[in-house]
């Protein structure tokens, strides 16, 4: 097991290095001059001589005149020490500017993941057990609708119904402007603001997972060992949760772990619609503004998350299914 784990870690390091090269070169191939973009706003207010001086200085500060390979070596050696450089937009270290959106995203997604799993797993199991019942058919219709309806539309509908028509929730934001409370009062205010975004993300996510769990459970329930278990006279609850669900878990576990990994990734559409300062919008903004230090740092972070996610998934297979344990 230890040898397998060490091999996987080495593999992760290799993949990380290769992807870092690819990403760095890709980002640097994107057309555009970050120095010129940064000065565009003040071009009209400074003299041409000052512009030329500032432009040269900025290119020097950003290291844009170095050969690409030198820039990569500098960037990589800084990155592995935790220095991702400066954000050209925020004029702050990348790590400092990423903190707040990452914190917001994790805060939101923890609720989303927990609530989604609490709803979808029992619902999927119940639908599989009651396959083709009226309840199952109704759930199937709604999951298809939820699965296929864009979050943008769900968000607009929710805003119209709950914010504009009934004024139950605010249209956007994470807290009331100029809110002075702390502790539970702050939490309450935050949840009041986050209710609609959470609702939209959850509604948009229920369909896919419910259908996936249902399909896995239907497969498991059709196996011979289920018939054997029932023939032995075991209680139906034990048959479902101890025999069928344990076996259905293998395909579902990939989905569940990948869901936990999404705790760190933002939802661009929901963040934009509700003006939440989260990772999705932050990443796209960084790309649009050519704030490549930020964009590439986020991308590398997601690579690490994905690599660890794969490792955890593979290791958890062994926990769930003794047949695929490395030791055995």
């Amino acid at each position: 097991m230890a040898k397998y784990f060490a091999k996987r870690v080495l593999y992760m390091v290799f993949v990380f290095c290769v992807l870092s090269v690819l990403l760095f070169f890709l980002f640097n191939m994107i057309p555009g001059d970050p120095a010129a973009m940064e000065l565009a706003a003040v071009k009209e207010s400074i003299t041409p001589e000052q512009y030329a001086q500032r432009y040269a200085q900025l290119r020097d500060q950003m290291g844009l005149d170095d050969p690409l390979i030198i820039r990569y070596v500098k960037w990589f050696s800084n990155m592995i020490t935790g220095d991702f450089g400066m954000s050209h937009v925020y004029k702050q270290p990348v790590l400092d500017v990423v903190k707040v959106p990452l914190r917001n995203t994790v805060f939101i997604n923890v609720f989303v993941v927990i609530i989604c799993l609490i709803i979808t797993i029992p619902l999927g199991i119940f639908c599989a057990v009651k396959k083709n019942s009226l309840f199952d058919k109704v759930v199937q219709v709604f999951t298809v609708i939820g699965y296929s309806m864009p979050k943008f539309i769900i968000a607009l509908l929710c805003i119209y119904l709950f914010a504009v028509k009934n004024n139950w929730f605010p249209v956007s934001g994470m807290n009331s402007p100029n809110f002075q409370g702390t502790g539970f009062a702050l939490f309450k205010d935050t949840m009041h603001h986050l209710f609609l975004p959470l609702l939209v993300i959850i509604l948009g996510s229920l369909g896919g997972i419910t259908r996936y769990v249902r399909a896995a459970m239907i497969d498991a329930l059709s196996m011979d060992y289920i018939k054997t278990a029932r023939a032995k006279g075991l209680k139906e609850r034990i048959v479902i949760f101890s025999h069928a669900w344990r076996n259905a878990l293998l395909p579902v576990i990939t989905l569940i772990i990948s869901w936990f990994m999404t705790i760190f990734s933002g939802s661009l559409i929901v963040e934009r619609m509700f003006n939440l300062h989260g990772m999705g919008k932050f990443y796209i903004d960084a790309l649009n503004r050519q704030d490549f230090n930020v964009a590439i740092a986020i991308q590398m972070f997601y690579i690490v998350i994905a690599l660890f996610g794969n490792l955890i998934t593979d290791l958890s297979y062994g926990i769930v299914d003794p047949r695929v344990r490395v030791n055995s």
């Binding site: 609720f111 927990i114 609530i115 609490i118 004024n167 139950w168 929730f169 605010p170 009331s176 100029n178 809110f179 002075q180 409370g181 702390t182 009062a185 939490f187 309450k188 205010d189 949840m191 009041h192 986050l194 209710f195 959470l198």
Partner: peptide, 21 residues
């Protein structure tokens, strides 16, 4: 109960927050 409490908190009326000066 956690989910329910989150829901209830979210559904609380949109009056002026008590701690807003």
């Amino acid at each position: 109960s956690m989910v329910l409490s989150v829901f209830l908190i979210g559904c609380s009326p949109s009056d002026e927050p008590v701690d807003t000066p």
